[in-house]
């Protein structure tokens, strides 16, 4: 068990940027991003036995991460989770990015106005996935993936423009 745990931790630490980026895309506040980050790690660990090595680890990871984010329910603010938040999770605030990674900061702000499926489309697109791969991950047809992605990109452009930024 300990060995499995170590292998798993090594693998997800190599690709933890995926979890960071999804958490930032799907949640606006830093606390909520941390919660989602923890939830994704938990679900990855729970789902790890289903990873048989037939596909790349990242392919499997994308699916579990996205599916978790798609159906994630925010924690009830009235109920405080007894499990302490892992303070080591460093969720970068939008303001922190300004200047240095301004475009990404605007992107993260703009995607908050997209719905959960649109966020998944943009995320997979930015992760260099082809239309076919996006379609396979989301379980829709390739044509549908292309149409949806184009619409989402247009929507994102107009949101960014509306927010007074253009690149």
């Amino acid at each position: 068990m300990k060995e499995t745990e170590n292998i798993f931790l090594t693998l997800i630490n190599q690709h933890r940027a995926i979890i960071h980026k999804i958490s930032k895309m799907y949640m606006n506040g830093v606390e909520e991003q941390r919660d989602l980050f923890q939830e994704i790690v938990l679900q990855l660990w729970k789902a790890y036995p289903t990873f048989k090595g037939n596909s790349k680890f990242t392919t499997w990871m994308y699916r579990v991460c996205l599916n978790t984010a798609l159906i994630y329910f925010k924690k009830d603010s009235r109920k405080v989770d007894k499990t302490p938040l892992d303070e080591n999770i460093d969720m970068i605030d939008v303001n922190e990015n300004e200047g240095k990674e301004e475009k990404l900061a605007y992107l993260y702000t703009a995607v908050q106005e997209l719905n959960v499926v649109e966020k998944a489309l943009i995320f997979l697109f930015l992760e260099n996935q082809s239309h076919r791969e996006i379609a396979e991950n989301l379980g829709i047809s390739e044509v549908n993936a292309r149409v949806k992605l184009n619409r989402t990109k247009e929507k994102l452009q107009s949101i960014i423009k509306k927010n007074g930024y253009e690149f």
Partner: peptide
């Protein structure tokens, strides 16, 4: 993204939040 490695503590959380 910066930040420390994911630790074993994070695997011990019991409460999941799917519907």
């Amino acid at each position: 993204p910066k930040g420390n490695n994911i630790s074993t503590d994070m695997l011990k959380i019991k409460q999941a939040h799917t519907p």
